[in-house]
Design a protein around this nucleic acid. Structure first.
Lengths: 309, 309
DNA sequence: GTGAAAGCGCTAACAA
DNA sequence: TTGTTAGCGCTTTCAC
């Protein structure tokens, strides 16, 4: 077909309002042209987590540039009969970016189920060993370790840790990094100082208030996200402590508001939007070439120094 | 088919790992079982706006309960060749919840294009007059009016307004409500006090700092969202003003952090998650019965009094 | 009720 | 290269 004929056909398609039917096309070609973002999140408002909304936005941008589409789904952990597999088996998506929560053994079971579909998937924030699986992670462990290092250098030695009660792999890595740093400085790890709270930040507030009342020598906290960081500052203030003078706080994620609150948050930033982009790119590459260009991508985190520590 | 046979068939389907192919099914039935969330947002991180992430979460919950799926798409306003219509014409979605930005005339053109598809759609935050269109709105105008009323009752009479530079219909309604309240109290509306800034909150900070420097008598501001509210508090503080004593701030949306910052934000809350749920429900009802149970749903807003005003 | 057949709109495979 | 044909996996229809 010559260039000119092509132009005429294209014009005719426009004039007649022809649009290829994606279902007929997919039925034949065994492709859907859509990628899923799948998560297991106990919160009904699963996208309220800025990590999720940034990741999904990054995916959406890559997919749009490519002419593909994005399907979003979240499972509640307490609905055990449900599964992601039907999305693949029913041919609704060609691949997926997956962010799993739950105990490690359960996450492993989910990953095995995904692997069994034979379709490509990218796991966020967690290693994966499966022929059709790849991983996109941020170096949460190192990020947390450097944050605690920094606190120790500033003279804070009694440091707590407060994170989301939902068992996200990133939280586990951050806890590990916190322990790494304590160990490197020969400080004891005290389990009772590793706090956990539901996403509802008021609960984090209470947890920390309780700890500080019981153990007033605790002088700093590393939080698993910036929302907890502001609630920590608030809890300390309620006890008459000022941040950072009497109580230092470091957050995680660098949420939009982090630079705006008083004091502005010192926080560990990670490139969530970029991670979403990369995950989508990996998937598209797999769909085109039958293999992942990289099986594991590790993004660095960075400690952003502001006023809270 | 008896109950028992049905059970046997179902079991056989499970055993043999049978899953109906959604594309074959859709090709025949002319249904996709998926609903879109579509927005025109200049920000690549379009889901960073908590209104969007809450709305999408609400939609996702309803659709999941119903066995339907959610497709998410965002257009950049400066890519004029793109359009939402192909999603319908190519049979990727059965209907959509749409949040449009842009000048009113452009939004009208988008709505006309949606109406031309003949598929059902629900517009967020804006009236719509089309046989297959319905509207889900929050009473932004009234909410803004009551917030300004409250400021005036507290003795603040020189009140500014600061909102997102992106022309969202909700921002227009909030500005209208701000003007309503001024008028009701026979206070002049001064266009130079109606500020606008990109989503980047630092720009809001600068805008307000400039205004307060030029017109120090301005003693309060109503902000189009809570992120601007914290940046307003910060801008005022940079000029030596304390909130709420010297400068009162009211936000909009009741973001997660609103109760945690210092001072906690007085803000106009709207039920974004519920709005997403309702929009999805309307669409599903249309798809089932061929008409909307309601063509327009208006959710109330509420002024949440905390410390910033 | 049960079963057979046609066909949704494409694309891949094959023939000319 | 170009044109033709079969068939993807369902659902609907029509005959029995």
């Amino acid at each position: 077909m010559t260039r000119e004929t092509l132009a005429r056909v294209t014009r005719a398609m426009d004039e007649m309002g022809y649009h290829p039917n994606s279902q007929a096309r997919g039925l034949r070609s065994k492709r859907t042209g859509t990628i899923g973002f799948l998560t297991i999140d106990p919160s009904v408002r699963f996208l309220a987590d800025p990590f999720h909304s940034a990741t999904v936005s990054g995916m959406a941008d890559v997919l749009r540039e490519h002419g593909s589409y994005l399907l979003v789904d979240a499972l509640q952990p307490d609905a055990p009969e449900r599964s992601f597999a039907p999305l693949f088996y029913e041919r609704r998506i060609d691949g997926a970016v997956v962010h799993l929560s739950g105990p490690p053994a359960e996450r492993g079971a989910w990953i095995r189920e995904l692997a069994a579909t034979g379709s490509p998937f990218v796991i966020l924030e967690e290693r994966v060993d499966a022929p059709t699986g790849a991983a996109v992670r941020a170096d949460n462990r190192r990020g947390a370790c450097r944050a605690v290092d920094y606190l120790i250098e500033q003279g804070y030695t009694e440091i707590a840790f407060l994170t989301d009660a939902t068992p996200w792999p990133a939280s586990e890595a951050r806890l590990a990094g916190y322990r790494d740093a304590l160990e490197a400085h020969e400080l004891p790890f005290r389990p009772e100082r590793a706090l956990t709270a539901s996403w509802n930040p008021m609960q984090g507030h209470r947890e920390l208030e309780t700890l500080l009342t019981r153990e007033p020598s605790v002088s700093a906290v590393l939080c698993g996200n910036d929302l907890f960081a502001v609630s920590a500052i608030r809890a300390a203030r309620a006890l008459g402590r000022r941040t950072p003078e009497d109580f230092a706080v470091i957050g995680f994620d660098d949420f939009d508001f982090a630079a705006l609150v008083e004091p502005p948050l010192t926080t560990v930033a990670l490139p969530a939007y970029e991670m979403g982009r990369r995950a989508a790119e990996l998937l598209l590459a797999y769909l085109e070439h039958g293999e992942f260009p990289e099986k594991e991508v590790l993004f660095p985190t960075s400690l952003t120094l502001r006023g809270s520590a």
